[in-house]
Write a protein that binds this DNA or RNA. Structure first.
Lengths: 211, 211
DNA sequence: GTCTATACGGGGATAGAC
DNA sequence: GTCTATCCCCGTATAGAC
């Protein structure tokens, strides 16, 4: 697809912009900064993307949309409700490890949603993931493997919250774990994913049934 | 304390700044905007606070520090570990209802931590709350009312994550709940708090013991 | 303590050469 | 497609009158 170099100028700009937007947000990040980080002329940015806002949306589309789509995919393809929950959380953590900028971009978009003219596409996609998870939980409730006295909508929120918060709160969690602000290792993140899956499944399980 | 008006100019500036910083973040919010929202001359801001960054820190100190201190307080004063967890989550939600700007300010500070020169005071206080919660959980494990095959640090993260994420994700959660982007009612938030407390306690409880 | 006027820098964006 | 030069606006911050 690329006409000239192995990594096109567009992609270099997108990569640099993604990192800076995640780290600093949209308004703190300047066009010139992105150009410097990308090793490209800042004016190129306008040639390819039109303006800063459009570049931001391109970054969002490339990075955070797949996160949510991946989750919805898993829920649709895993048979057991309990395993679907475990797999969903595992996939979230793996996604964050592979795309470290994604969680911050996602949360920034949530938080900024009512302060920007941004189309709420991210929100509706996120809401759809919620709905699918809810359906999985209700499926488990009908089958009797999840307790019925739990509001499925609330349980979906509780389930989703763990991995995202873990990723976002990494600085504080790092201090908490006694690692300074450096953050947590990938291995610890994976251990947390296992924990979080069990945590949610246990919270949903009736007292009599073992996991 | 106030020398002239019922609400001092400082407080009006702090109130306006708090709302704008929560909604837009530090960099997107301008001095003139704050002045207009506060009904005060923008230059006054420099007289009272020195500069924008210092005003931001004053807002943070006033709004988000109490959130964490309140939580630590509860953990220190509630007897049963299970009730302490329920009370902590309940207090978080109540705090967010009383101070709607707090969760966004808190999360912004977390996310921006490595992009700003900000002292990490918020992070260390948050980490201390984690530690106290962990101690409560381990206390419950020693007493046999919580299962011992759970990493207490991970469980603390899972427990804390629910209320904060619920507050932050309100737009998406509102869509998910079928309420448009308007957001969730206070009553729904309180119901979620009850749910989240039970969710965490159940996840920690051995299979044999009823809640 | 409060207001007006303004200096100063930096950011987004465009024109136009190559 | 890429680069240079530059315009214009607007944001922070200060000086100084009242």
């Amino acid at each position: 697809m690329a006409t000239t170099s192995a990594v096109s100028a567009q992609d270099q700009i997108l990569d640099a912009a993604e990192a800076l937007f995640a780290r600093q947000g949209l308004s703190r990040t300047t066009i010139k900064e992105i150009g410097a980080a990308a090793g490209q002329n800042p004016a190129l940015l306008y040639y390819y993307f039109g303006n800063k806002e459009a570049l931001y949306r391109a970054v969002l589309e490339r990075t955070v949309a797949p996160l949510i789509e991946r989750g919805a995919d898993i829920l649709a393809h895993v048979a057991s409700p309990a395993d679907a929950i475990r797999a969903l959380i595992g996939a979230q953590i793996e996604f964050f490890l592979a795309h470290p900028n994604a969680p911050k971009l996602f949360i920034r978009e949530m938080i900024d949603h009512d302060a920007r003219r941004a189309e709420a596409v991210i929100l509706t996609v996120a809401a759809e993931l919620f709905t699918r998870l809810r359906n999985v939980i209700e499926h488990g409730q009908r089958e009797g493997i999840f307790r019925r006295d739990v509001e499925s909508r609330f349980a979906a929120v509780s389930t989703i919250s763990q991995a995202i918060y873990f990723a976002i709160a990494r600085p504080a969690v790092g201090i908490f774990f006694g690692l300074g602000t450096a953050g947590v290792t990938d291995q610890t993140a994976r251990e947390f994913a296992r924990h979080a899956g069990e945590f949610a499944v246990r919270a949903l399980s009736p007292l009599e049934t073992a996991a």
